[in-house]
Design a protein around this nucleic acid. Sequence first.
DNA 1: TTAGATTCCGTGTACGCACACGGAATTTTT
DNA 2: AAAAATTCCGTGTGCGTACACGGAATCTAA
Lengths: 362, 362
Amino acid sequence: MTEPIRIKDIAERVGVSSGTVDRVIHKRGQVSAVLREKIERVMKEMGYEPNIAARTLAHNQKRLSIAAILPDYRTDPYWEQPKEGVERAAESVRHYGAMVEFYFFPIFEPKTFLITVSQALDAQPDAVLVAPLFLQEAQVLFAACAQRNIPIVLINTQIEDDDELTYIGQDSYQSGVLAGRLLNFGLTDGDHAMLVNLDKEVASARHLQEKERGFKDFFNGVEKKSVTIHTAVQEDFDDPVQLKTWAEEQITLHPQLKGFFVTNSRAYKLVEALSPVFLQKAKIVGFDLIAPNLKLLEAGKIQFLINQNAWQQGYYGILTIVNRLIFKKETQRILYLPLDIIVKENVEYYLKGNLQSPIMVV
Amino acid sequence: MTEPIRIKDIAERVGVSSGTVDRVIHKRGQVSAVLREKIERVMKEMGYEPNIAARTLAHNQKRLSIAAILPDYRTDPYWEQPKEGVERAAESVRHYGAMVEFYFFPIFEPKTFLITVSQALDAQPDAVLVAPLFLQEAQVLFAACAQRNIPIVLINTQIEDDDELTYIGQDSYQSGVLAGRLLNFGLTDGDHAMLVNLDKEVASARHLQEKERGFKDFFNGVEKKSVTIHTAVQEDFDDPVQLKTWAEEQITLHPQLKGFFVTNSRAYKLVEALSPVFLQKAKIVGFDLIAPNLKLLEAGKIQFLINQNAWQQGYYGILTIVNRLIFKKETQRILYLPLDIIVKENVEYYLKGNLQSPIMVV
DNA sequence: TTAGATTCCGTGTACGCACACGGAATTTTT
DNA sequence: AAAAATTCCGTGTGCGTACACGGAATCTAA
């Protein structure tokens, strides 16, 4: 193995001190143009790559505080996963001087979200990780971060923007297409299928719209069977009685209904609202490996779950920030996590956050 | 954030020098029992965790050479993936003084495998990564490694042994069960399905046996449809004409045949041997994201591919070794990688080795 | 031309850990 | 009891990088 090239090697080759090379590397100026170019050339020639361990060690007096603004995990089991991913990542990077402060907001309250945001910003974080559920209110946060010049990483909900936003999560459209494919496997010609939004403010929820678009596009595509698609929204998913009534209505209305695609992690609520008899023939595709869903997957009452990798969204979100601000690495603007297809036979591999051993980005 | 505890902090608290604490940490003796216990106690109390960056930096005069003994990737596209995973990992850990030397052997030649092994061992590696395709011959390698007291990591083929072997790969039995589940989705009552081994020396290939067992167990289980299962072995898979003849025989023999489970990455060879007409109705489940399979998945001629994560097998294999020997971390004996279900709608996420940014285990 | 301002570059120290070296304290031997 | 051997522990240095500090060289202004 060839010995790694050090700053010192570059310096000696050029005939300057290591401090000068360092200034070039960090673009800290104070170096004449001639010398700078020469040093840059020699660095390329010799293939210099910084020693991360040494860099980290030298850096380690620096402290990095990250604000994680997430929906309250106590109001919705889905949000436990990003939280745990963030916690795990925080643990991994603690040694490098990064710390994470959580700020939780109630899942359906845009106004409280704004209050939470201002609390987070008051603490003067160096970076922000956020699940920007509310399009309007998120803009306020984006503006504030742009003004303070601190990087911001979005998870779960993708919002395009002029600023330097990073998104980590799923491709919602594609997940809708995939759901179509999976339902299609289980259905036969003439069946009806229904896309169900068990959510609030669906019209303004970008990711739900995208899923619907993808789902419909699949069945308009070439490979589909002749399946009729319905769509429905039910905002009162927290009231079992009402949900049951609603579900039975749908079934009577569409007797050919054989398949459901629930666009978020609440497939279990739909299953609970459907009669056991009906369930025997029904095919259900949902999202996310949360406990109530897993139970029904195991019982054969949910056929497929698409894993949104919520845990990884949190984990990679933090790692991305640390990579940028501590290791000063280039990071990608958009990281689409895989759309894992989960059945009971492979579910166990996706439960522990996929990363059995702590992983550190270098 | 609480400041990280350093060796120095421990030393001051106990009233000794950092050198003494260091000797306790590394169990290098030269410390009285009383003091040792006291230091160990204080370390726990204060929750000492070594600074990986500093440790790595201090360690860095050490060199670690790893021998990677793999089937020749030129004879079988499957083996490109582990090779690339190993290469990527090698790149990530180069800074830490680890280097990987490849040793390739022809995929069906046990004798050449032995020669390759002795070549690898002649180079005096500090650790070995191997795909032990040949049960008998692998024992020779295990013995040699045990004698030299160097750790060995197995990928792809799991072999139990008394020695301290580490296995990274799939759970073959479970992948068979999963294949059963997937085929079951596409078949209807009364259909026949066939498990096809396009391989040589199947009887002594542990992982193929396990897949078969899992597949059959699924259809003997509760949730299955009434599907009749056949199994077949075809060793002359490299001769298209012969394979075609054989395939047509099977179809005439079993007119109800609607589904195939190919137990390795050669599903594409079966597809090429089947008539287009027959393929329109056939359901095919295979393994691995190699180019010819991907093309057929895209074309809708293969319904499902199960991803064996061959890339990751190589990647995590190297990382495990580095974790053990450089970072001195505990590593797990068995790492079962996920059994990803791949359809054309989610295939793209699994192609780039899943790790877009270089990742280092710490 | 000289003092002052500015640009440019070298030196030194710290980061936390690993380990070699040697000195002090204790035990064993003479 | 003195010498030798052994156990035990502290000190010092290096790993490669980041950055503060200050000195030397060059440039500007009087």
